[in-house]
Protein backbone atom coordinates (compact mmCIF):
# COMPACT_ATOMS: atom_id res chain seq x y z
CA UNK A 1 0.00 0.00 0.00
CA UNK A 2 1.23 3.44 -0.86
CA UNK A 3 0.45 4.81 2.58
CA UNK A 4 0.81 2.25 5.38
CA UNK A 5 -0.89 4.52 7.90
CA UNK A 6 -4.05 5.08 5.94
CA UNK A 7 -7.13 3.24 7.17
CA UNK A 8 -9.93 3.04 4.64
CA UNK A 9 -13.60 2.67 5.38
CA UNK A 10 -14.79 -0.39 3.50
CA UNK A 11 -18.39 -1.59 3.46
CA UNK A 12 -19.52 -5.00 2.24
CA UNK A 13 -22.92 -4.62 0.63
CA UNK A 14 -24.89 -7.86 0.66
CA UNK A 15 -28.02 -8.03 -1.49
CA UNK A 16 -28.34 -11.65 -2.70
CA UNK A 17 -30.06 -14.71 -1.39
CA UNK A 18 -27.67 -17.14 0.32
CA UNK A 19 -28.24 -20.01 -2.07
CA UNK A 20 -29.00 -20.32 -5.78
CA UNK A 21 -25.77 -18.56 -6.73
CA UNK A 22 -22.28 -18.32 -5.25
CA UNK A 23 -22.27 -14.54 -4.70
CA UNK A 24 -23.20 -14.70 -1.00
CA UNK A 25 -20.78 -17.51 -0.16
CA UNK A 26 -17.77 -16.06 -1.98
CA UNK A 27 -18.77 -12.67 -0.59
CA UNK A 28 -18.41 -14.16 2.86
CA UNK A 29 -14.94 -15.42 1.94
CA UNK A 30 -13.96 -11.87 0.98
CA UNK A 31 -15.04 -10.63 4.41
CA UNK A 32 -13.01 -13.30 6.21
CA UNK A 33 -9.86 -12.57 4.20
CA UNK A 34 -10.11 -8.79 4.32
CA UNK A 35 -10.79 -8.94 8.04
CA UNK A 36 -7.11 -9.82 8.43
CA UNK A 37 -6.12 -6.39 7.13
CA UNK A 38 -6.21 -3.37 9.34
CA UNK A 39 -9.07 -1.42 7.79
CA UNK A 40 -12.34 0.03 9.05
CA UNK A 41 -14.76 -2.68 7.91
CA UNK A 42 -18.52 -2.85 8.02
CA UNK A 43 -21.23 -4.95 6.37
CA UNK A 44 -24.82 -4.28 5.44
CA UNK A 45 -27.47 -6.90 4.62
CA UNK A 46 -30.40 -5.84 2.51
CA UNK A 47 -32.93 -7.28 0.03
CA UNK A 48 -32.71 -11.11 -0.17
CA UNK A 49 -29.35 -11.11 1.66
CA UNK A 50 -31.21 -10.88 4.98
CA UNK A 51 -32.19 -14.51 4.37
CA UNK A 52 -28.52 -15.50 4.66
CA UNK A 53 -28.68 -14.56 8.34
CA UNK A 54 -31.76 -16.62 9.15
CA UNK A 55 -31.38 -19.14 11.97
CA UNK A 56 -32.10 -22.83 11.46
CA UNK A 57 -31.15 -23.21 7.82
CA UNK A 58 -30.81 -26.73 6.45
CA UNK A 59 -29.13 -27.08 3.05
CA UNK A 60 -28.67 -30.86 3.18
CA UNK A 61 -31.15 -31.46 0.36
CA UNK A 62 -29.60 -28.72 -1.74
CA UNK A 63 -26.22 -30.46 -1.50
CA UNK A 64 -24.44 -27.19 -0.78
CA UNK A 65 -22.56 -25.94 2.25
CA UNK A 66 -24.57 -24.36 5.06
CA UNK A 67 -22.57 -21.30 6.04
CA UNK A 68 -24.92 -19.13 8.10
CA UNK A 69 -23.04 -19.95 11.34
CA UNK A 70 -19.91 -18.35 9.88
CA UNK A 71 -21.55 -14.93 10.08
CA UNK A 72 -21.15 -15.22 13.87
CA UNK A 73 -17.36 -14.91 13.57
CA UNK A 74 -17.41 -11.71 11.48
CA UNK A 75 -17.03 -9.59 14.58
CA UNK A 76 -13.92 -11.55 15.60
CA UNK A 77 -12.59 -10.94 12.09
CA UNK A 78 -12.72 -7.20 12.56
CA UNK A 79 -16.10 -6.50 10.99
CA UNK A 80 -17.63 -4.93 14.02
CA UNK A 81 -20.31 -2.81 12.42
CA UNK A 82 -23.01 -4.96 10.88
CA UNK A 83 -26.29 -3.48 9.69
CA UNK A 84 -29.52 -5.02 8.45
CA UNK A 85 -32.22 -3.08 6.64
CA UNK A 86 -35.51 -3.00 8.51
CA UNK A 87 -37.72 -3.01 5.40
CA UNK A 88 -35.88 -6.00 3.92
CA UNK A 89 -36.55 -7.99 7.10
CA UNK A 90 -40.19 -6.93 7.25
CA UNK A 91 -40.88 -7.73 3.60
CA UNK A 92 -39.70 -11.28 4.26
CA UNK A 93 -41.59 -11.73 7.51
CA UNK A 94 -38.38 -11.82 9.57
CA UNK A 95 -37.49 -10.22 12.86
CA UNK A 96 -33.99 -9.61 14.16
CA UNK A 97 -34.51 -12.32 16.83
CA UNK A 98 -34.64 -14.91 14.05
CA UNK A 99 -31.13 -14.07 12.85
CA UNK A 100 -27.87 -15.84 13.72
CA UNK A 101 -26.34 -12.48 14.69
CA UNK A 102 -27.79 -9.32 16.17
CA UNK A 103 -26.95 -6.58 13.68
CA UNK A 104 -28.00 -2.98 14.02
CA UNK A 105 -31.39 -2.56 12.35
CA UNK A 106 -31.57 0.57 10.21
CA UNK A 107 -34.29 1.96 7.92
CA UNK A 108 -33.64 1.97 4.18
CA UNK A 109 -33.64 5.78 4.31
CA UNK A 110 -30.33 5.69 6.23
CA UNK A 111 -28.47 3.45 3.77
CA UNK A 112 -27.39 6.14 1.31
CA UNK A 113 -25.92 8.24 4.12
CA UNK A 114 -24.00 5.25 5.47
CA UNK A 115 -22.65 4.42 2.00
CA UNK A 116 -21.67 8.04 1.47
CA UNK A 117 -19.30 7.79 4.47
CA UNK A 118 -17.34 4.89 2.92
CA UNK A 119 -14.16 4.95 0.86
CA UNK A 120 -14.91 1.61 -0.79
CA UNK A 121 -18.11 -0.35 -1.37
CA UNK A 122 -17.80 -4.04 -2.21
CA UNK A 123 -21.07 -5.52 -3.40
CA UNK A 124 -21.74 -9.26 -3.52
Amino acid sequence: MSDEEKVSKIMFVNRRAPHGSIYAYEGLEVKLIMGAFDQDLSAIFMDDAVLALKKGQDTSELGVKEFSATFRVLEDYGIEKIYVVEESLKERGLSVDELVIQPEVIPISKVAELMEQQDVLLSF
Binding site: M1, Y23, Q39, V120, S123
Partner: peptide
Amino acid sequence: GLGQLLEMAVDSDRLVTFGD
Protein backbone atom coordinates in the same frame (compact mmCIF):
# COMPACT_ATOMS: atom_id res chain seq x y z
CA GLY B 1 -5.11 -13.36 -3.13
CA LEU B 2 -7.97 -11.10 -2.14
CA GLY B 3 -5.46 -8.89 -0.31
CA GLN B 4 -4.55 -7.60 -3.77
CA LEU B 5 -8.14 -6.45 -4.31
CA LEU B 6 -8.04 -4.65 -0.99
CA GLU B 7 -4.77 -2.94 -1.92
CA MET B 8 -6.13 -1.89 -5.31
CA ALA B 9 -9.32 -0.56 -3.71
CA VAL B 10 -7.68 1.52 -1.00
CA ASP B 11 -4.95 2.76 -3.35
CA SER B 12 -7.42 4.11 -5.96
CA ASP B 13 -9.76 7.06 -6.16
CA ARG B 14 -12.52 4.74 -7.34
CA LEU B 15 -13.10 1.00 -7.40
CA VAL B 16 -15.53 0.28 -10.24
CA THR B 17 -17.36 -3.05 -10.09
CA PHE B 18 -18.71 -4.77 -13.20
CA GLY B 19 -21.22 -7.48 -12.41
CA ASP B 20 -24.88 -8.19 -11.84
